[in-house]
Design a protein around this nucleic acid. Structure first.
Length: 321
DNA sequence: GACATTTGACCGCT
DNA sequence: AGCGGTCAAATGTC
């Protein structure tokens, strides 16, 4: 069907333009391949990086073109922001890329967002919208304040519905079919809700227009990461060891004593390198392990839905003793 | 056994 | 009344 394109037509159709972009990207890739074969360019990381970025950019433009043709919008779900030498320790992913400079990685922050920036430590998000305080009580259909919405590209490998790990552990507590949406919405709360009284929540939903993109809405901030002392929920007080005490030691158990500064880069890498995030409180049958901060490092690095086996392997000695 | 996920039911806002 | 958000029992996994 595309072969007819070879016939030179005086007037270029949109499809022609798209294909020419695709061919251009292929040519760039071919040129890079040639360079790598003919020289020792492979040893030049900067050259490699630059070349790859050009190629990715070219393909992204082609993707944009295709999406415009198919009416799927301009999202580039699989573009990964560059991995920076980030310094930030709280929201490494969020700050790792300069979203403002990338049209497809735009940052959209609404007023009163600062207090809830805690909510998004995740990466790869294409767009972010922030609201005010979270809803209260059992039902509040209308999102009021305190929410943060991100559009997160879904990595091609693994579970399609799993957004990149955002550095927190989540527990799924519900799923609903949403009106006029092809995909259900999943509801998650922080795993440490019981022990720290952490009220952070998030909703995850695939976009109709772009099944490869998840819209993640964060609600509330993670007190589990900022509170120096656990909050014992009365219902748990009867037990000397609260149900979530292990969680306490899991990833945010000693937040102040275990600054995440040294972890930021690792977490970023972990997020981007993993095929799919451990995601949604997948401590796998309560196999949360005793670690911190090294565990957080390893968690981020290896949390990829691997059922905790790797983590178990790493921490079993300490946990078992 | 302990924890997570699933899923139908329930609640309350619009 | 309809819908979105949450609860909680049932089920699954380790």
């Amino acid at each position: 069907m595309f072969l007819c394109l070879a016939d030179s037509e005086p007037k270029q159709t949109p499809m022609d333009e798209v294909l020419s972009q695709v061919f251009g990207a292929c040519r760039l890739a071919g040129e890079l391949e040639s360079s790598l074969r003919l020289s020792n360019a492979a040893a030049d990381a900067h050259f490699l990086l630059s070349s790859c970025e050009h190629i990715v950019d070219a393909f992204n433009k082609a993707i944009d073109g295709v999406r415009m043709l198919t009416g799927e919008g301009r999202m580039r779900p699989f573009e990964l922001p560059p991995i920076p030498a980030a310094e930030d320790d709280e929201h490494p992913f969020f700050e790792m890329a300069d979203f403002s400079e990338s049209p497809q990685l735009s940052l959209e922050v609404q007023p009163s967002a600062a207090a809830h920036s805690e909510a998004f430590a995740g990466g790869g998000e294409a767009q972010v919208a922030v609201g005010g305080a979270s809803s209260r009580g059992r039902s509040s259909r209308k999102r009021k304040e305190g929410y943060v919405t991100k559009k997160v590209p879904v990595l091609r490998t693994g579970n399609m519905e799993v957004p990149p790990d955002d550095g927190y552990t989540w527990r799924k507590y519900g799923q609903k079919d949403i009106l006029n949406s092809r995909f259900p919405r999943s509801y998650y709360r922080c795993t440490h809700k019981n022990y720290y009284g952490c009220e952070a929540k998030k909703q995850v939903q695939r976009l109709d227009a772009d099944p490869y993109t998840l819209e993640v809405t964060y609600c509330g901030s993670h007190t589990c990461k900022t509170s120096p002392t656990p909050i014992m929920i009365p219902s748990l007080a009867h037990s000397p060891i609260g149900k979530d005490e292990k969680d306490d030691r899991t990833c945010h158990g000693h937040p102040q004593a275990a600054p995440t500064t040294t972890l930021s880069t690792s977490i970023q890498l972990g997020n981007w390198f993993e095929g799919s995030s451990r995601q949604e409180g997948q401590t796998q049958g309560g196999r949360d392990v005793d670690y911190c901060p090294v565990a957080e490092f390893a968690d981020a690095m290896f949390s990829s839905g691997s059922s905790g086996s790797i983590m178990d392997a790493i921490y079993l000695p300490r946990q078992g003793n």
